[in-house]
Design a protein around this nucleic acid. Sequence first.
DNA 1: AAGTATTTTTAGATTAGTCTAAAAATGAAT
DNA 2: ATTCATTTTTAGACTAATCTAAAAATACTT
Lengths: 222, 222
Amino acid sequence: MDHLSQTEENYLKAIFKICEQEEKAASTNAIAGEINTTPASVSDMLKRLAGKSLIHYEKHRGVTLSENGLQIATMLIRKHRLWEVFLVKTLNFSWDEVHEMAEQLEHVQSPELVERLDSFLGHPRFDPHGDPIPDAAGNFASRKQVQLSTLAIGEKAVVVGVQEHSAVFLQYLDKMNLGLGASVGVQEIFEFDGSLKVTIEGHQDLVISSKVSENLLVQKTK
Amino acid sequence: MDHLSQTEENYLKAIFKICEQEEKAASTNAIAGEINTTPASVSDMLKRLAGKSLIHYEKHRGVTLSENGLQIATMLIRKHRLWEVFLVKTLNFSWDEVHEMAEQLEHVQSPELVERLDSFLGHPRFDPHGDPIPDAAGNFASRKQVQLSTLAIGEKAVVVGVQEHSAVFLQYLDKMNLGLGASVGVQEIFEFDGSLKVTIEGHQDLVISSKVSENLLVQKTK
DNA sequence: AAGTATTTTTAGATTAGTCTAAAAATGAAT
DNA sequence: ATTCATTTTTAGACTAATCTAAAAATACTT
């Protein structure tokens, strides 16, 4: 088995992402949406990937990754997230600039390169967005994190991740001092629209929309 | 003009390399040899590249890079060589291991990434094989270097580059203490086969074949 | 200058990946 | 269970890049 094309790799990543979020088989439509292509193209590709035993595929039933496919997808995520750490920590990019570059770097084929990079970076366990970096064996670190929106009044927590990765959202968080590591407390919840008034350690209190609080992942403190 | 495919980029690099070596237009055959494809495929591609004004092409006449094509090829070389420095200096690979990886990394599209990498590395002017790294404007540093084989008996010099980049050659040089920076002196020249007896500062004297001395670039000292 | 050898180009096919439009399968709703 | 809407698959066509084999152009040799 020689190595996959970038296109094939992107399909595996998309399938991984969908299965992870939805906790079930990925539909043709969902994959098309994720990859920005047509369902017809996806159907075609699914046949090819099934032919290489990278996915489990029965017509009209959606697909899941095979053990092999899962392994490859996991390594792509490992590479992507390690490169993101490199770009932010070593080259001083900000967290909202690195996605596109990592998207390309993740396709560089060299297992040795990944391991050297990992060790140069000090074996980081989370990327600049707080997403866990699978280790060389493919294991993801896990954390007891929840959406900020699930906290009750008076609870305190530390921002450890985001669910939405768009540059605009990340820039908004920077501006509001809500980046990774920010210590926040819920002061008030407005029933009307689900917005929250939060305290931010070292900064001014702030009202954030439910859309923001649902996309912020935190770890409760105390 | 959106950006080029990796294939197109590889053709531009090949044409650059041939024109540089031969000092004239690159022939279809030479390009096919460099890229490991058939002359027919090259002919096809030349039409496409000419269509994008990346090369000057008249049938049966060979090709040269247009200003545009030259700019792109130069930036590819810049990226390739910077990544090689990164791999050797930062990730501690040896000079015979980095070519393949750099070959992939050079296709990552992000001008900002190149500049950040360059500055992280301290604006190196030569790569791990002694090849000059073009600056952001595309200018190559130049040096008065000659093949070791051109020295007369008694002359001394420092190894600054190689003309052959194969892993076996580079490993041979490592083993013989003839890596970049080695101080050598020509002690004896054997007419019979053109081999040389050289002194190497800090190491034992050594006889090297003409093939080796022709592929070693040195800068005369004193 | 003619004829042979070499190089280059064309012609025609192939593969990966994509698309649109149409057909088939599935799911939902009465 | 039949209809309607949605999802998925097929059919057929297109582009980029490649190949082999044949044709055309150039270069070499005497």
